[in-house]
Amino acid sequence: MSDVSLGMPQLPAPDYPADVRARLEADAKEVIARYPGSRSALLPLLHLVQSEEGHVTRTGVRFCAEQLGLTTAEVTAVSTFYSMYRRKPGGDYQVGVCTNTLCAVMGGDAIFDELKEHLGVGNGETTEDGAVSLEHIECNAACDFAPVVMVNWEFFDNQTPQSAKQLVDDLRAGRTVEPTRGAPLCTYKDTARMLAGFPDERPGAVEATGGAGPASLVGLRLAKGEGVPGRGADHVISPRTADHPKGQQRPTHPSSHDAPQETSASDPHHPAGPAAEEGE
């Protein structure tokens, strides 16, 4: 049955070569077996077909539909909803610049603008050599390290326009680039296969996977009353103001947000109370 788009019939999507289809069917069977309901396997299956061609093609959509007993319209609706599924060919390295609030004010907007000029591409576009696709992205939960650039969803923290331009130049030149933390960098297709749920079998990749960075752990250390990194081991902060007897000076903190603060007394001229009923 042909797809229908805007009332115009389209030719059936071409199929994968026999050897590729056999390999993908074996992988798909493994993915589907993880779920009690096969429909739940659609997201990883879309990553699987994306790992084959670098984006979700009509062939990939039809393959997912056949494996899960869905219509191509149902698969297309999901693949076009999530931004991590490409709708057109892209580069080996997806370079995303966070332009959400904190990264933006810390320099993310400037990085994104300079990369567009440096690479000669706009948002969602790919360099002529097919190496780099550029996009602005939303928060990646790395605000402690703003501004952040991500390459195939690996972190490059505390970037500047200069370091970001050097980063993309190295990627285009084929030079080794190491993320600030986490696993080694790999191509977009390899990343897509991992997102489908298959292990990263490169030597040392598992051992290199990191957790939260030091900046993210400052709050936890403060809550435990430990020393603040970079301020000496004897700079200890207690998590509770009750730990400091009245009359003793409270310790200083790196910022006003690093420890609980005493609140001021209520305004006696504007006391807070239950909302008055209408008509009172």
Results as ranks from 00 to 15, higher is better:
81 F>M: 15
82 Y>T: 10
82 Y>I: 14
82 Y>D: 15
83 S>V: 11
83 S>Y: 11
83 S>A: 12
83 S>G: 12
84 M>Y: 05
86 R>Y: 11
86 R>C: 10
87 R>T: 13
87 R>Y: 05
87 R>G: 12
88 K>S: 13
89 P>R: 07
89 P>F: 09
89 P>L: 10
90 G>H: 11
90 G>L: 06
90 G>V: 09
90 G>P: 04
91 G>S: 10
91 G>F: 11
91 G>L: 09
91 G>R: 05
92 D>A: 09
92 D>V: 04
92 D>Q: 11
92 D>T: 07
92 D>E: 15
93 Y>M: 04
93 Y>P: 00
93 Y>R: 01
93 Y>E: 01
94 Q>T: 04
94 Q>N: 10
94 Q>F: 03
95 V>P: 01
96 G>R: 12
96 G>W: 03
97 V>S: 12
97 V>T: 15
98 C>K: 01
99 T>R: 08
99 T>W: 04
99 T>M: 14
99 T>N: 09
100 N>R: 12
101 T>R: 09
101 T>Y: 07
101 T>V: 11
101 T>P: 04
102 L>H: 11
102 L>I: 15
103 C>V: 12
104 A>T: 09
104 A>V: 07
106 M>E: 14
106 M>R: 13
107 G>S: 08
108 G>F: 06
108 G>E: 14
109 D>F: 04
109 D>H: 09
110 A>C: 13
110 A>N: 04
111 I>K: 02
111 I>R: 04
112 F>P: 00
112 F>R: 00
112 F>D: 01
113 D>I: 02
113 D>R: 06
113 D>A: 14
113 D>F: 01
114 E>K: 07
114 E>S: 07
115 L>A: 04
115 L>E: 03
116 K>C: 05
117 E>L: 05
117 E>Y: 00
117 E>W: 00
117 E>R: 03
118 H>E: 06
118 H>M: 05
118 H>T: 05
118 H>P: 01
118 H>L: 03
119 L>A: 02
119 L>D: 01
120 G>Q: 08
120 G>E: 09
120 G>T: 08
121 V>L: 05
121 V>E: 00
123 N>F: 01
123 N>K: 06
123 N>E: 07
123 N>W: 02
123 N>H: 11
123 N>D: 10
124 G>T: 02
124 G>P: 05
125 E>H: 03
126 T>S: 01
126 T>V: 04
127 T>R: 00
127 T>M: 03
128 E>D: 14
128 E>A: 12
128 E>R: 11
129 D>N: 08
129 D>E: 15
130 G>V: 08
130 G>D: 09
132 V>I: 14
133 S>N: 03
133 S>H: 01
134 L>R: 02
135 E>T: 09
135 E>P: 00
137 I>M: 14
138 E>C: 10
138 E>A: 14
139 C>E: 13
139 C>V: 11
140 N>C: 14
140 N>Y: 09
141 A>D: 14
141 A>K: 10
143 C>S: 14
143 C>T: 15
143 C>E: 13
144 D>F: 07
144 D>I: 07
144 D>K: 10
146 A>G: 08
146 A>V: 13
147 P>C: 13
147 P>N: 11
149 V>W: 04
150 M>L: 14
150 M>A: 06
150 M>D: 04
152 N>I: 04
152 N>Y: 03
153 W>T: 08
